[in-house]
Write a protein that binds this DNA or RNA. Sequence first.
DNA 1: TATGAATGAGTTTTCATTCAT
DNA 2: AATGAATGAAAACTCATTCAT
Lengths: 236, 236, 236, 236
Amino acid sequence: MKKGSKAAEPDTNGVVSNAPRAEGRRVDARRKYDPEQTKRNILDVATQEFSAMGLTGARVDAIAERTNTTKRMLYYYFGSKEGLYQAVLEKVYGDIRALEQDLHISELDPIEGMRALVEFTFDYHDRQRDFVRLVTIENIHGAKYVEQVKTFKGRNVTVIHTIEDLLARGIAAGQFRSDIDPIDLHLMISSLCFHRVGNRHTFGTAFGRDPSHPRLRARHRAMIVDAILRFVKKDD
Amino acid sequence: MKKGSKAAEPDTNGVVSNAPRAEGRRVDARRKYDPEQTKRNILDVATQEFSAMGLTGARVDAIAERTNTTKRMLYYYFGSKEGLYQAVLEKVYGDIRALEQDLHISELDPIEGMRALVEFTFDYHDRQRDFVRLVTIENIHGAKYVEQVKTFKGRNVTVIHTIEDLLARGIAAGQFRSDIDPIDLHLMISSLCFHRVGNRHTFGTAFGRDPSHPRLRARHRAMIVDAILRFVKKDD
Amino acid sequence: MKKGSKAAEPDTNGVVSNAPRAEGRRVDARRKYDPEQTKRNILDVATQEFSAMGLTGARVDAIAERTNTTKRMLYYYFGSKEGLYQAVLEKVYGDIRALEQDLHISELDPIEGMRALVEFTFDYHDRQRDFVRLVTIENIHGAKYVEQVKTFKGRNVTVIHTIEDLLARGIAAGQFRSDIDPIDLHLMISSLCFHRVGNRHTFGTAFGRDPSHPRLRARHRAMIVDAILRFVKKDD
Amino acid sequence: MKKGSKAAEPDTNGVVSNAPRAEGRRVDARRKYDPEQTKRNILDVATQEFSAMGLTGARVDAIAERTNTTKRMLYYYFGSKEGLYQAVLEKVYGDIRALEQDLHISELDPIEGMRALVEFTFDYHDRQRDFVRLVTIENIHGAKYVEQVKTFKGRNVTVIHTIEDLLARGIAAGQFRSDIDPIDLHLMISSLCFHRVGNRHTFGTAFGRDPSHPRLRARHRAMIVDAILRFVKKDD
DNA sequence: TATGAATGAGTTTTCATTCAT
DNA sequence: AATGAATGAAAACTCATTCAT
């Protein structure tokens, strides 16, 4: 009952004239209601709030307030707080996938490919703190919301394929060890890239050094690449 | 031999396991007035609830209910929900650092010492899921509660000292590289041990494999030790 | 024609029924959404409760119960118990100063003006016991709530201006002494009018005579006017 | 533990007034417990707290905390919060009476006597803010607690007798008007002396001038004496 | 006489959600 | 499509008072 009305969405097409918030929208500059934009606006604000406060910590009122619309619309489009949270997860996981495609790692030499993969993973986590936080939050909830995101599982297989391919080619070239499990390796790379961002606050408090500070960025990036390469390379 | 005995222990991860009742104390379970026990009881239950639900998700009523006392006592001893949460953090961080001390790593050969440290870190995170969850939760709150725990900062320096000592001795012995920053190394070890536990749910959902599953335990433990040793060892 | 169809409705008065909060407001007691009325209703009940019980003694539940709405609305509009209390203070102080303006004292002969001012002050305190009680209560709290009422300070200056004008004209006419400070005089008038109402209970208990009893009203009124006039008049 | 040092107190006069309630009590100068002192201590702290916070605003815990004893003793001696409040009222009303006796107004000339009475009343209120506040608080509660203080009513008659005597002598001497009611006059004097202290906070906030500020003290004192004398004196 | 621990019943406040327009 | 007003249920927290020692 909540989502049923979605079907009627994209047909408002300029019936009423007054333009309240006429931004750069060219399509029909003067139309009053723009469901897509409203939804996107809500989603953006919600991403921030959820990532900043967690699922239980986030406040529907707080989200609504920073939106261009009202709380009612939030329910109109997303049904519930949890529905909105799931929509946020879906959006955020979608983003990373798109980027991964652009790497064309399979065209690179295994070692360079491995380096590229690690660097990409590092950079992504380093930049997408909201993503990191949301994953963290999901884990606190036992990943039960992400499980319902249909596109989720399929998305992750591609990374494993990439790694499998890299490992196979590296082994064939005599560069890599042959006893490495691709999923374990992926876990390892993720660990190194994720932790320094996700747990930077307690780490910073404990050791007086924010591990995600820009000044450490380059050093950590090199260090992690180094560690992974030392790990996968065949002993001479 | 210390490590050995621990390795065999089942996945306790429970609340009552740590905090062994002080030796001298005559424990009379039925005595009515026992503030220390009351406090410990509240703290134990709270640890579970906070780690399971997060700070905002936890319910004071839920904690009180599973306690031997009433909600009122919770406020009597800890002042507020946040106060209780902080007490939990303090307890939990205290435990890990205390155990680290028992390792006597400084008496071991650098390589063996490094191995012992990594294995301890691995085992601790592997078993103390509550700890891992609470750290995660704290990070969602920007570490602002742990910052107020007076004993927190001091406690963490010791690990760094341990690592500094290991590195220095390893370098002197010609076994270790000389370009490694101890805090960075600690971050690296933590990352590898923490992530597989903290993010096991999303990881499990994504790849159909729970990285913290007992069957993977030994393999991951060896892998992480291996990775760290490969990273610190001097190239021949 | 459009209006025509609505003509049957009780009180639309030709104003088409949207724009609910326009000036030409006909109060329909049964309409369900009327924020102004809801607020006023809450405020009225709260005035009674706070004045009867004090800030700490008042019960939010008690207020809500005697309201047409629920406790929730009280928080919706006023934010907190203290916020509501402040709103009450603001309303109550606003009332007396507004009425003072209606006296047009500046148009009266100085002596008659002074008499009118004293009589007004007397009558107001005599009738508005809630006001007197609330002021008393505020003083127990060190006036810290009224201090936050923005409109408060500005409102009170007007009385002083009125008195200054009276004194100046009386002096010019050779009727009044020239050594009287207007604020001191205001304090004097207030004292005489306030005390007999505010402290009537202890006074009544002590002397077996309620000073605010209607039977004493006229006598006190005359007495106070007399006292003030004797005080301000120039000695012959 | 805390109270040991206070052993010597004003009214015990070095005699160490042996066990107050004469029973088979062992008289021991070094005795550990001193009920009278404990009670007085509680009473003093309670006077401050009640006068500062009001009856409902005062917190039993807060009182107990600032005491040399514990909360339990407070109940032991005074039965309840209200019982303690009443004991405070009793004490405070007792104090003023003692002072009034020392004036010997009946020995003074009517005008000087009137001046002395007003000045005494002024000074007393000016100095005993706790008294003023407690009276105020009592009025908020409809004087229902002071009514139960047995000694209360009797105490106040004496002032009226003093005034009656003054008026009678003044009339006889041709100095005073003959149409003044003594209770009304007392009310008038009280009003002028009480209000500037009791309502000083709102007054100060409203007009930017604290009417009870020491700098205004002398002026107000003279002003009030002046006003009363002008009021009682016979017109020439 | 004295005390720290304990408590039931209440009190304020918050929250996600729905209603009427 | 959009909205401000409204709400029940639950949550955090407080208070005067009593218990066991």
